[in-house]
Structures are given as C-alpha cells and as structure tokens.
Amino acid sequence: MSYTWQYYDLVLLGIVVSLGSGVAVGQFTALPSTTTVPVAGLVAIAIMGHGLFVNGPVDAPRDLAEEVETLN
C-alpha cells in the first residue's frame, strides 16, 4: 500500500521548507538571520492562509452554518 500525498500534507511541508530555508539562507549566506527568518515566516503565513481561506477544509460555505449538537 503506497501513501498518496494530500493537499494539507503539502501545506505542512511548505511551512517547514519555507522556515527551514529561511534559517539555511541566514546561516550560509551573508544575509542576516534576523532578515531571512521573518521573510520565510511571511511565506509560511501565505501558505497557511491559502490552506485556510482559499482552499479551506470545508466543501461549501453551508457546511459552516450547521449547528454543533455537542455544544447545545
């Protein structure tokens, strides 16, 4: 049985890769880590925003309007 990559696996991988590359660029180039890590953080925020708002974990907006029975 082989594993198939899902969209949210790629979102998590993109966050890790962007932050890791920010650290690596700051460590191995002349650019300071105080610059590269926040820039990589902005890339990670953009990836998270896409995963939450552009391609969110619901099928339709009506899914958000359903009542939650466990809280009543």
Results as ranks from 00 to 15, higher is better:
Gly49Arg: 14
Thr36Trp: 01
Pro32Trp: 07
Val43Arg: 03
Ile45Glu: 01
Asn72Met: 14
His50Cys: 06
Thr36Phe: 01
Glu67Phe: 08
His50Val: 08
Val43Glu: 04
Thr29Lys: 04
Met48Asn: 09
Gln6Ile: 15
Ala30Phe: 09
Pro61Thr: 00
Val54Asp: 03
Thr34Glu: 04
Gly20Ile: 09
Gly41Asp: 06
Gly51His: 04
Thr4Ala: 05
Asp9Glu: 14
Tyr7Cys: 01
Gln6Arg: 12
Leu19Gly: 00
Ala60Ser: 06
Val68Gln: 12
Ala40Ile: 05
Ser18Cys: 10
Leu10Ala: 04
Ala40Gly: 06
Phe53Gly: 08
Val25Leu: 07
Val39Ala: 13
Asn72Ser: 15
Gln6Met: 08
Phe53Gln: 15
Glu66Val: 08
Leu42Asn: 01
Ala60Asp: 05
Pro38Tyr: 01
Pro57Thr: 09
Ile45Gln: 04
Ala60Trp: 02
Glu69Leu: 10
Pro61Asp: 02
Ser33Glu: 11
Val16Ser: 06
Val39Asn: 10
Ser2Arg: 13
Pro38Trp: 05
Pro32Asp: 06
Gly41Glu: 13
Thr36Cys: 11
Leu31Val: 12
Pro38Gly: 07
Thr70Gln: 03
Pro38Asp: 05
Tyr3Trp: 01
Asp59Arg: 05
Ala46Ser: 14
Met1Asp: 13
Tyr8Arg: 00
Ser18Trp: 07
Leu13Cys: 00
